[in-house]
Nucleic acid binder design. Structure first.
Lengths: 328, 328
DNA sequence: TCTAATTTGTGCGTATGTATG
DNA sequence: GCATACATACGCACAAATTAG
């Protein structure tokens, strides 16, 4: 509860400070608040400035005044406008479900401002720096950016949440994230029976874009189950062969491979298999159904909203599913 | 910090001087700048001249104003030449291409903040109201919201651009938009030969969501070319029949219909046809290719960026294409 | 509670120089 | 030469916010 000589008006600082104290349980219902004079002296303010703040809270029904005695907390229901700073990596279709379920599961009077760092450290830092102190909650998607913790230090620790990708340096923050290594390992394990039909597993892995955990989980699975395997970064002129299963994180590559399969008159799920990463609507009907490994973005958005509303500290691995369709 | 009677305008000298002071560390983030009046007296200037300079810095996000208090430094990053307020209807996959091509085609020193009104008048108005005066360009996607002009009046007319959907009330603003009526009419006309194979055209039209022009263009085409036609709002239990062509704006319905077609052992492009609205990656391979009518979001983003950079007043219909694939 | 000082925000009128056609 | 539009600059008046006494 301190005041300065800059930016936001003093009386608004007082209001905000009292609201937060109530939210954090410093003041309970019925508690007496400091008198106007005590605040006036403590922070060297005009009496009017303090009065302005108390009157605002009074007209909003949060505190009540008892003439001759003082001010008391009337209700702990401080529906102060919550503002959330949401920093995504980039704008793409997969964010649709996540963002919309997040918004829906937050209350109506919570405002979310969205930003994109485009995998650029400078942009990331500037966005953090320029928005310090303006929001009640900061949700950060670090993606593959390293050492973001150095800049996140500038934000109040208890107001930061990490989303989608987790790094060791960020372990002090609550988070909900994909465990790519575990997800791909267990998903493949769940599909083991079907995979036994095939001879060789091939992962299409672009190391600048895809998270490393994906690669590790894939290799772990193949070694444990004695699968022949290969990791390639692009399709190029490669011709798919019988007995292969392709694990494809990127949809452009998915299209290329399906076209090649048709050119070669191969038959999906007989001659060879496909597993795609991230489920989208149309994958249900492409080639009578593409098998996907996919995190539940809906659940991720919902759980994140709950964590924020309940001020819950948790570090959660988001649920992931293998959706088996005809392509395997 | 001095002004002369030569060359560059006085207000630009003020801007430059303040920028330099920030760069040299004379003013730090959060610092209070001299009041308009103090500068006015010190350098014998008009109040308007100083205001002009401060407003420029404000709309670029470098300083912020607090009525009744003064001007404060918001960021020490002075490079930003323009800040753009971008108001979308909702977060969905179709925006990906549009947004990314827009960003790419703006220069490096232009910042874009993005917001969503979720088809809600109140949210729309609040977002406009809360952001008056702090951006130098406003790009608005009114979608199906009516009478948005009443609130857009609060923004400087020459700084507003309308995106994607156009309404009569907004004719005074530059814009780039889809002409749904014309687009669907000419696209269908371009496919006339193929359509002649079929007997009846059916438009799946949800009137709360889809723009009216779509319906009008469809009806106009059918009447002009003597097609039997029907407009339905959902599929429900309807069974697709031979000789029908379905025009489907929504992808969920696309999936439902394709499933039904398979259940009934009908064959696409022989027994019946499908045209989908808005092209996406996977439609190239769904059922060996879905014919689509689609606006060029890439072109839309690029052209919008050009208009803003060149301060060009134009009202442009965005190009639309019929992409013929096997489903017709 | 009242008064006053300071500051930003906005609107209107006016004048001048420059570029355009 | 003339008309027009635009950017620049000045002056004035009033509203509303902030803060102090």
């Amino acid at each position: 509860m301190i005041k300065e000589n800059t930016g936001i008006p003093k009386y608004k600082q007082i209001i905000k400070s009292i609201e937060e104290s109530i939210l954090n349980g410093v003041y309970k219902r019925g508690d007496k608040l400091p008198s106007i004079n005590s605040i006036k002296f403590r922070f060297s303010l005009s009496r009017d400035t303090v009065l302005l703040a108390y009157n605002d809270l009074k007209t909003r029904g949060i505190i009540q005044s008892v003439p001759g005695k003082g001010y008391y907390v009337k209700t702990e229901n401080v529906d102060t406008q919550q503002k959330i700073f949401l920093l995504f990596d980039e704008f793409n279709g997969f964010k649709e479900e996540l963002f919309n379920s997040f918004i829906e599961n937050l209350g109506d009077n919570i405002e979310v401002d969205i930003f994109f760092h485009h995998f650029n450290h400078k942009v990331f830092n500037k966005l953090i720096y320029d928005n310090i102190g303006i929001y009640n909650t900061y949700v950060i998607m670090p993606a593959n950016l390293k050492e973001t913790n150095l800049f996140l230090e500038r934000l109040p620790t208890d107001k930061v949440y990490i989303l989608d990708q987790m790094h060791q340096e960020l372990s002090k923050y609550p988070s909900i994230f994909q465990n790519f290594e575990k997800d791909i390992f267990t998903a493949l394990s769940n599909g083991l029976e079907l995979l036994r039909k095939y001879k060789k597993l091939i992962l299409l892995f672009q190391k600048d874009i895809e998270p490393k955990g994906m690669l590790h989980g894939f290799e772990k699975f193949c070694m444990k189950n004695d699968f022949e395997y290969e990791v390639i970064d692009k399709i190029g002129d490669r011709a798919p062969e019988r007995g292969e299963v392709y694990l494809i994180p990127d949809d452009r590559n998915l299209i290329r491979i399906i076209k090649k399969i048709k050119e070669l008159n191969l038959v999906l799920s007989k001659d060879l298999g496909i597993i795609s990463y991230n489920d989208t609507l149309l994958k249900e009907i492409v080639e009578d159904g593409i098998t996907t490994i996919s995190t539940d973005f809906n659940a991720m958005g919902k759980r994140l909203a709950e964590m924020i509303i309940n001020k819950e500290f948790a570090q959660i691995e988001n649920p992931n599913n293998l959706i088996i369709r005809k392509s395997l």
